[in-house]
């Protein structure tokens, strides 16, 4: 068979709408991951065992199990507990939560990379604990985390196709809808895949630039 360009052009606008939804899920989910990951990282460093131990367990568990099932859980189980999320909202929460367990490791490494002398100096100057974090430790830890954090934004985007399983209107969901009417799967599936691939390649290119820039800064 051969690729039907007219058919492909016909369905392209719908697929691009789907891609937009995928990008929204990426951006918002990533924002959730960035914030929640920092919360996880700080909670795991807490001196209160009743905070650090359970948070550590939950983080490890979420990181160790498949995102897809976590999405099912959010979308199908939470409504039974009285919390019904829209597909997109469930997808964003799922992606954000899952990737927060990765970003928390990045933050942790960044925090541990701050030399111990910085903590010593903060104590010698009697800075309050909160101030030590906000003005000494995090301003040093976060910049050095940026390259690794950028890479997780790419990884997160590559997991967005899984939202098809909870009916978020991303390209594959859109494609399936088209196939249900036309019974011609080749073009929609190929194009949905190519759209994802193209964005992933662009993001990966941007990621390399960010990495290079920050490496330059770190050695300057």
């Amino acid at each position: 068979m051969k690729f039907d360009w007219n058919y492909a052009l016909d369905i392209l606008p719908q697929l691009l709408d789907g891609l937009l939804t995928a990008l929204i899920a990426t951006v918002v989910g990533y924002a959730v991951a960035l914030v929640l990951g920092l919360v996880f990282a700080l909670a795991r460093r807490s001196h209160q065992k009743w905070v650090s131990v359970p948070v550590g367990f939950v983080v490890e568990f979420i990181r160790g199990t498949p995102l897809l099932i976590q999405l099912f859980f959010l979308f199908f189980v939470l409504p039974q507990l009285g919390l019904a999320l829209s597909p997109l909202a469930a997808g964003i929460v799922g992606l954000g939560l899952h990737y927060a367990t990765y970003t928390s490791e990045v933050y942790r490494a960044g925090i541990e990379g701050v030399p111990p002398g910085q903590w010593d100096a903060a104590i010698a100057l009697h800075l309050p604990r909160r101030r030590v974090w906000t003005s000494v430790i995090l301003p040093q830890a976060v910049p050095r985390s940026i390259p690794a954090l950028t890479n997780y934004s790419i990884a997160l985007f590559k997991d967005v196709p899984q939202l098809v399983a909870i009916t978020v209107a991303e390209p594959f969901t859109v494609g399936r809808g088209i196939i249900a009417e036309t019974f011609r799967p080749f073009e929609p599936i190929t194009m949905a895949g190519l759209l994802y691939l193209a964005v992933a390649l662009v993001l990966s290119y941007i990621g390399r630039i960010v990495e290079r820039r920050y490496k330059g800064m770190a050695t300057a």
Binding site: P161, L197, A200
Partner: peptide, 24 residues
């Protein structure tokens, strides 16, 4: 590396299962 790291597992799986049969 770029191509197959960029192509998520699900993207590949979709293509192998739903598109490839169209090519026989």
């Amino acid at each position: 590396v770029e191509l197959f790291r960029g192509a998520a597992v699900l993207v590949l799986a979709f293509w192998f299962v739903y598109a490839l049969p169209s090519l026989g």
